[in-house]
Design a protein around this nucleic acid. Structure first.
Lengths: 184, 184
DNA sequence: TTGTAATATAATCCC
DNA sequence: GGGATTATATTACT
């Protein structure tokens, strides 16, 4: 136990005001049934509500009218932040067999299909610079008629891919060397 | 040379270009945000340098078939040579100039995977106080068997996340109100 | 089944 | 501390 920090929790920054609480009370008894973390972060999803097409079934969003204030000292219900994605998916797994019902389970941006030309340009840029700054990305976005966000994600994934492939080839080489040594 | 993608070329600013690539005119002037440099103290990165065992976290590095270089920043032989000696750019001020060419990042701490329980506790504390002082963090660290540093970073990221979600829901509401006004 | 766009978040840089 | 960005791990779609 650390009795000393019951409420010694005073940030020297003097920022927000914590209340008195003990970690024990938090760590303590029930730490199950607590809050599901996370939030969606899907800006494009609001298109659903205005399109009217499959609007209301688009998101598993709970009540959103949330006027949560940021300095989170007191009463903010983190709980409402989102319905946990995986749980949601799993609980509706039966429905997934029906393709026609799929649409309402997607809280995900529709996968972008890059054209051959777009990929070519991106690859060429990547070859020279795999960390394009914001201005380059914007420029590319405009020229390729893509959102800047797609570009950024693309580079991110591309770097990951490069790294992966490199790692693999390294492994392969290591194995080769290993075998070669055995043969000596 | 890539015949079909000249379209991407838009000489916005003149800058030294590695090659006669048309696209590189786009990315020539890349200033910042390129490769993450190194931080002074990273105990966990020890294994990375020099020793034969290239940690999996240490980036894919110049151990490719010699002569074949990395697709990124290929046109900087000097750089690549330097790269071979980790200590070199790690300790020199020159590393700043290498920054934009260093696409590989060596000493990153392995990503921590928190357990469900750790997250629950952290979330619970966060709900009460999202700016825990050093003493609380230390206590948490001890109780959750984590480094205090992990805790601090967690809270930092958690605050960022909250802020983001708050910002987004505000935006959403604004849009809704906007649409509602249109319908009146 | 594979490849990869998208997502979530820990770690890092820079102010 | 915050903002922006990166690396990384994972998910899910084609």
């Amino acid at each position: 136990m650390s009795p000393s920090l019951q409420q010694a929790a005073q940030p020297r920054e003097g920022k927000p005001s914590p209340r008195s609480f003990s970690i024990e009370s938090i760590l303590g008894p029930d730490q199950k049934n607590c809050a599901p973390p996370l939030k969606p972060h899907r800006p494009w999803a609001d298109a659903c509500s205005s399109s009217g097409k499959e609007g209301d079934r688009c998101l598993p969003l709970p009540s959103l009218p949330h006027g949560v204030s940021f300095p989170c000292a007191v009463d903010h219900p983190v709980t409402e932040e989102r319905v946990l994605k995986h749980e949601y998916y799993r609980s509706t797994s039966e429905r997934l067999s029906l393709k026609s019902e799929m649409s309402w389970y997607k809280g995900r941006r529709p996968r972008t299909a890059f054209t051959q030309n777009q990929i070519e340009v991106l690859e060429n840029v990547f070859r020279v610079n795999c960390y394009p700054g914001i201005d380059i990305r914007e420029d590319l976005a405009q020229k390729l008629n893509l959102e800047e966000d797609r570009i950024q994600i693309w580079f991110q994934n591309r770097r990951a891919k490069l790294k992966r492939s490199h790692r693999e080839s390294q492994l392969l080489m290591a194995k080769k060397n290993f075998n070669a040594n055995l043969l000596e």
